[in-house]
Nucleic acid binder design. Structure first.
Length: 579
RNA sequence: GGUCCUAUGGUCAAGCGGUCAAGACACCGCCCUUUCACGGCGGUAACCCGGGUUCGAUUCCCGGUAGGAUCACCA
């Protein structure tokens, strides 16, 4: 077979050589040890927590080392394309403060184009070269034939796929190929796998001995099968049988498969670390063989664990699914109003096992100061824990200044709860507004033991809504220790003695006086000791007031709340109950 | 089914041949307290099973079991 001639027959329009392409993508000029990472989403328009998890690893690895993090759109499957998807992806990541240095939709970047759909000529140049070297061939197998082969293999209980004797098109003559093409038969290009049987010419055959492949992976024989050993930055050395499938590298459309695009792009774009989900681990042998055949060095792989959750139905662990689990969608967190910092910080706690420890030792340090390492990543799938997220969020929000939080709340409302927006920007009522909101959010946050009530925007609004008249309602009944008559009496006396300028202790002294006067213990302890002597205690009395002003029995300090509400609103709420 | 990954309390996790097996979240109790939160103190709770190797295995090896991943002209 004249491979040179075959290559020309297949790719007459390709006139560049791999060397010429290679020259267009010179090694990057970066400091020693700098890592180059990339995010390669397919433009389905859906970005989920797993993407963010991975993107975060990419971003940290690159930016921590003075390297480059770029965005490459893997749109080799035209069926999947969704309009505006790239914008969705970049804006979602930007929301979480994850930014690219170069790539799709960005100015500059010497390693583009960053859309795989625009790199056809590049891939074909390398495919043509492979054909020319007898390492790849056209395959005319139809869907029916493929199904037939598969059925045959299943019946014989052997591994399915196109390999060895099943690779029927492998040894087609030039004339046969030419005739097929002339007849207009569609075809794909497959690699001619070297197989995984022991090959003394290529590999070690002394038991246990290993040799290094061109790409840098090691291979060693196991019981007649060649195994490849690759060092994964997260998992350590992983071993699996070498690839023996004549995998497709170019589809009938002339577009490469993920496998081939990955190899060519990550090589040309000089990616040093390939971060991707565990679901790719099994195709590693294919990639090793591809890197080998192309003569490219292997990048460092970082196969991240899959995020899991407990399935309500079965009670078992399972991979988060975008269909069943709304919390997987990044939109869920934006919708609930989680602060991006909180999500990031939580992600970091499941990403690096020593992060929490570091955070406790450095409560005020920026995340950027934490030294993130792939070695500290867990290789098992972590369960997503909403409780933990909430806990982390409380601490994160505590460190954000109230004014900034108010802004965040307003932004959230504008996007997800438009009816609340006028409330927060003051356009509904001049006495409300950003400053009012900031004061509310700052309530009880000062001092040595600040409150940690705030978790996410939706929850925060629920927590503070009584500050806004339109959302103020009496939600609970008065405590059973207090009769209706007493309740009325308490409120009447409270209103009569109310002086907005009282300080906190003057204010509480008055409540205490009312309590004692009506037969309630001045101190809860007295009541506990001699419950028979009292109707209740001062706590019950203040609950009545709390209920009148806040509408609920539980809230932060009443005096402080009243100071924010202002005298007018405070009096009005009590008066409303005395009518 | 083949192959690969994983296996410490309910969850996330330290551990890397000798520990009374850390810590965090959640949960429970007590204290603080006019409620709630915060905070403090304390508590319940774990090395999947079976073989080895070893003076000694949670830790190393083998087997089993369980969970997960993957077997496309999808990425």
């Amino acid at each position: 077979m004249d491979y040179e001639k075959l290559a020309e027959l297949l790719f007459p329009h390709i006139d560049k050589t791999p060397e010429e392409i290679e020259a267009m993508y010179p090694p990057r000029e970066l400091p020693e040890g700098a890592k180059v990472t990339r995010l390669g989403p397919s433009p389905t328009g859906f970005i989920h927590l797993g993407n963010l998890y991975g993107a975060f690893v990419d971003e940290r690895l690159a930016h921590q080392s003075g390297g480059t993090f770029y965005l490459r759109i893997e749109d080799t499957d035209d069926k999947r394309y969704v309009e505006g998807a790239v914008e969705t992806i970049t804006s979602a990541l930007k929301f979480f403060d994850i930014n690219f240095d170069e790539g799709a939709e960005m100015e500059g970047g010497a390693y583009g184009p960053y859309y795989q759909s625009q790199r056809g000529e590049i891939y074909q140049t390398f495919v043509k070269d492979l054909v020319k070297r007898g390492q790849a061939y056209p395959c005319f197998l139809t869907e029916e034939e493929l199904a037939e082969i598969r059925a045959e293999q299943e019946a014989a209980k052997v591994t399915t796929g196109i390999y060895g004797e099943y690779a029927r098109c492998r040894d087609l003559t030039y004339e046969e190929i030419e005739a097929n093409i002339a007849a207009g038969k569609p075809y794909v290009i497959r690699i001619k796998s070297k197989g995984n049987q022991v090959d003394p010419a290529h590999c070690c055959h002394e038991s246990g001995a290993a040799c290094t492949t061109r790409s840098g992976a090691k291979c060693v024989n196991h019981d007649g099968t060649m195994y490849i050993h690759v060092n994964d930055a997260i998992r350590g050395e992983v071993a699996m049988p070498a690839n023996d499938q004549d995998v497709i590298i170019l589809k009938a459309t002339g577009i490469p498969t993920y496998h081939f695009a990955h190899v060519v792009d990550d090589h040309l774009m000089r990616t040093t670390h390939v971060v991707r989900g565990e679901e790719w681990l099994m195709s590693l042998p294919i990639h090793v063989e591809l890197f080998d055949k192309c003569g490219f060095p292997l990048p460092t792989y970082c196969h991240t664990a899959v995020l899991m959750k407990i399935d309500e139905e079965t009670g078992g662990k399972r991979k988060l699914s975008k269909r069943k689990d709304p919390e997987l969608s990044l939109d869920y967190y934006r919708n609930e109003g989680y602060h991006p910092q909180a999500v990031k910080e939580y992600l970091l706690t499941i990403l690096n096992s020593n992060f929490e420890e570091w955070r406790m030792a450095n409560p005020d340090a920026s995340i950027d100061e934490f030294e993130f390492t792939t070695e500290k990543m867990s290789s098992g799938g972590a369960l997503f824990d909403l409780d933990k997220l909430n806990d982390v969020s409380k601490d994160v929000l505590l460190k954000i200044p109230a004014a900034e939080l108010a802004e965040f709340m307003a932004g959230w409302a504008a996007e997800f709860r438009p009816e609340l927006a006028p409330l927060f920007d003051g356009s509904a009522d001049a006495s409300y507004g950003p400053e009012y909101l900031a004061k509310i959010l700052d309530l009880g946050r000062d001092g040595k033991k600040p409150r940690k009530d705030l978790i996410y925007a939706k929850q925060i609004f629920e927590f503070i809504r009584y500050f806004y008249d339109d959302y103020f309602v009496i939600e609970e009944p008065v405590p059973e220790e207090v009769s209706d008559e007493d309740a009325r009496e308490i409120l009447q006396r409270y209103l009569d003695s109310y002086d907005h300028s009282d300080d906190q202790s003057q204010w509480f002294d008055k409540i205490r006086a009312i309590a004692v006067d009506l037969g309630y213990a001045a101190k809860p302890k007295d009541f506990k000791k001699h419950p028979e002597d009292y109707k209740g205690h001062v706590g019950h009395v203040s609950t009545v007031i709390r209920l009148a002003v806040m509408g609920r029995t539980q809230s932060p300090d009443v005096w402080e709340i009243q100071q924010i509400l202002g005298e007018e609103r405070t009096r009005a709420r009590i008066e409303a109950l005395l009518i």
